[in-house]
Nucleic acid binder design. Structure first.
Length: 168
DNA sequence: AGGAAGATCTACT
DNA sequence: GTAGATCTTCCTA
């Protein structure tokens, strides 16, 4: 899918090329693992809302996603920049374009995503941030999740094979 | 009020 | 490959 961010009348856009899935209470790497807190309660709510939270000094952008009655979210880990690259570079100056949005903290910096977007409905273009379908053809690779202390056995990281903007 | 943890990133070697 | 920076949130007192 493509991720679209409206910012001061401008449009920033990129193709989502890397994601990770997080479950609920049975997933030790999930923010939901220790139970419902004020900051993570959205993971129990209906899919399609932005779930934004902080790690170190960066914001992580997730979309709530799970089966009915379940708990979970998908972390957006990397984008292939498509529109508004000039503005992204202003938000996050880098020499090599591959460094612009190839990581969860990098892309939130480039797209100026922070707590203010927490709870936004990403299924409608009336939001400041939303996704639209893309019908490109590509192969999906999988691996274990990156940077987590305790992972599950199943591979829950998904990326576009061969894409230059994948984080690693 | 203070400490610890964390789904990170950068700058070094 | 690894150390250190640095910010939000939660937990305990």
């Amino acid at each position: 899918m493509r991720l679209i961010r409206r910012l001061d009348g401008e449009v920033l856009e990129g193709a989502i090329v890397e994601t990770e899935a997080y479950y609920g209470l049975r997933d030790p790497a999930s923010r939901a693992f220790h139970g419902m807190k004020n900051y993570n309660r959205l993971m129990w709510r209906e899919p399609g809302r932005a779930f934004v939270y902080n790690v170190h000094r960066y914001w992580m952008f997730n979309i709530v996603a799970h089966e009915p009655g379940e708990v979970g979210a998908v972390l957006i880990r990397a984008l292939e920049p498509a529109k508004g690259v000039e503005i992204m570079l202003r938000n996050r100056p880098v020499e090599d374009l591959r460094e612009l949005t190839s990581g969860p903290g990098k892309l939130t910096t480039a797209l100026d995503i922070d707590k203010g977007l927490h709870g936004a409905d990403v299924t409608t273009d009336r939001s400041e941030i939303f996704v639209v379908a893309d019908d490109l053809d590509f192969e999906v690779g999988t691996s274990h999740r990156i940077g987590v202390r305790r992972d599950l056995e199943e591979e829950l990281r998904f990326f576009v094979k061969g894409n230059r903007f994948v984080s690693r």
